[in-house]
Amino acid sequence: MTDSRPQAKPLATGSSPSLEAPSHSGPIRAVKLKHPWRTVIAVAIIIFAVLFIIDASQRTAYDWPSVGKYIFDRRVSEAALNTLQLTIYSMVIAVTLGIILAIMRLSPNPVFKSVAWFYLWVFRGTPVYVQLVFWGLLAIIYQSIDIGIPFMQPWVSFQTTAALNTFTLAVIGLALNEAAYMAEIVRAGLLAVDKGQEEAATALGMTWFQTMRRVVIPQSMRVIIPPTGNEVISMLKTTSLVTAVPYSFDLYTRTRDISAETFNPIPMLLVASIWYLLFTSILMVGQYFLEKRFARGVGDRKPEKGERTGPFTGALTTVRDASTGSTALPIADKNGGDSR
């Protein structure tokens, strides 16, 4: 609105720009604003990067021939696969458990609330490395696992070492720790959903659980996914701590063990880094598609044929920005009439 004021002034002073108005009515053709410093800085960075790459390719310490030799080494690629499995299994468990914990914390049931609170207190309050060492010592603390009624002859009893190998223990350790963080992410997501949504679902006769599953959780996904993507990538790297269990077939521990034999750690570090980067890139692509999926109804869905677009596009762009960048925007606003 304010832009119209400078135009209004000459009108008031009596000149007649209104007669010339038709000449302004076409599409605006203006000289694009130039950003000379952007270009300068970009060129400087590119030069620097090229010099660095040329230098790195010739530096003997990096030992590129060794990198090439070990990058597809059977032991390394197997270890990379193990790391990927550790990440996926523990994240799947962590997300599931995190959703359960978050719902427990928000539920009207005080018992659930306290249990969830206690879980978070323990698992967020101690370092993951310490937790992994504890899981490794599980077999020493509890030699056998009994299932049955307390103080009675157990129905089933098995040796801890036989039942849980180090890989399983590593997954449990990573998952239970991560679940505490996921619970907070999920809780923030659930709280970001407008209260009116829960109310509308309740008024339709849906139970609390149905309301969560059908209405609240799907909407919270938009808020939950970006930080969860962060957590997955962070988990990929945290797997390098499983040596504490001790599980030694993950990517980092394996490459370190190899370099202990070859006395040449730098190329093995590069090998590990390349694999980590590869996986991270794949995960980022996955995250992109997930985010698109859950932006349904509020994201950048192409308008259908014959649908009016004009007044909506502005609001939709804002929403899209919010869904990919900061996610603090309350979802409610997009539902209200004011979103137009």
Partner: peptide, 9 residues
């Protein structure tokens, strides 16, 4: 409701 509260997804 006043604010419709339709399910946006």
């Amino acid at each position: 409701f006043q604010k419709f509260n339709l399910f946006p997804h």
